[in-house]
């Protein structure tokens, strides 16, 4: 359903727009099936964030194209929605107001968007926190708001840019599990950027390993661990350790 074809992106120097500063993406191609959970994994500077931002339509690629259901996309659209690394919450809006933001832009009437927002807040376990301001709740809760805001738009593809990078380890595991639970209830496709090997193996059906300079795909690794993964201790499964070792090796080489 999502196809990335020979995508390339070069960043030029800020003060000398004719001088190339970084080849962020070079000839990147892959495709994602409907309802698949794909992780983009790599060291910093490998272009994974650039890639997801191009897919989101926030920046333009220099070469190549992106197709969703066969139609090329170059700008943000209703079919895709982004969850940001630093949450991207508007600090002057309450939790409820933040979830409503996307619906408000779509011009959905007040009563209706209230109701939708409350439903999604409940889904991410934030019932009762509607009137808090972002700075009054923890980082983990803030990202739940970010997720609720993205889900409320019911996108076909959920784009997540290191969404759990800014929260502590314990909260992170909890959020991973909840994300899997929510995903299992919907038919959303997820593209998830991370630099944690464990996170990528635990969450995804497929890990796309990237490397830097120029930013490109190293290899794709299928993760054929049983689902649901939150029951039992999937991380103790020998296949988990095997995949982890294999990806680590790939990242190193």
């Amino acid at each position: 359903m999502l196809e990335v074809r020979q995508l390339s992106k070069v960043f030029f120097e800020q003060n000398d727009p004719s001088k190339p500063g970084l080849v962020a993406l070079y000839d990147v191609s892959f495709s994602v099936r409907k309802n698949e959970f794909v992780c983009l994994l790599g060291p910093s500077g490998c272009g994974k964030t650039t890639l997801i931002r191009v897919i989101a339509g926030l920046i333009q690629a220099d070469r190549g194209e992106i197709r969703v259901d066969g139609k090329p996309v170059t700008a943000p659209g209703r079919d895709r929605c982004m969850v940001f690394q630093q949450f991207g919450l508007l600090p002057w809006r309450t939790v409820l107001g933040n979830v409503e933001f996307g619906l408000e832009i779509d011009g959905i009437p007040r009563e209706q968007r209230r109701e939708i927002s409350r439903r999604y807040l409940e889904l991410v376990g934030l019932h009762g926190f509607e009137n808090y301001y972002p700075h009054q709740i923890s980082g983990g809760m803030q990202q739940r708001v970010g997720i609720a805001r993205a889900l409320s738009k019911e996108p076909d593809i959920l784009l997540m840019d290191e969404p759990f990078g800014a929260v502590d380890a314990q909260t992170r595991e909890q959020l991973q599990e909840e994300l899997l639970k929510i995903w299992s209830k919907t038919d959303t496709t997820v593209i998830f950027v991370t630099h944690s090997i464990d996170e990528s193996v635990y969450l995804s059906d497929r890990v796309i390993v990237m490397q830097s300079r120029p930013g490109r795909i190293k290899e794709e690794v299928r993760v054929e661990l049983p689902r649901p993964r939150w029951e039992g201790d999937v991380k103790a499964d020998p296949r988990f350790a095997e995949l982890r070792a294999r990806i680590r090796e790939s990242l190193r080489g």
């Binding site: 926030l58 209703r78 982004m82 991207g88 933001f101």
Partner: peptide, 9 residues
């Protein structure tokens, strides 16, 4: 923050 706005159309 501006980017969030863009992402949400």
């Amino acid at each position: 923050l501006v980017e969030v706005g863009h992402a949400y159309l």
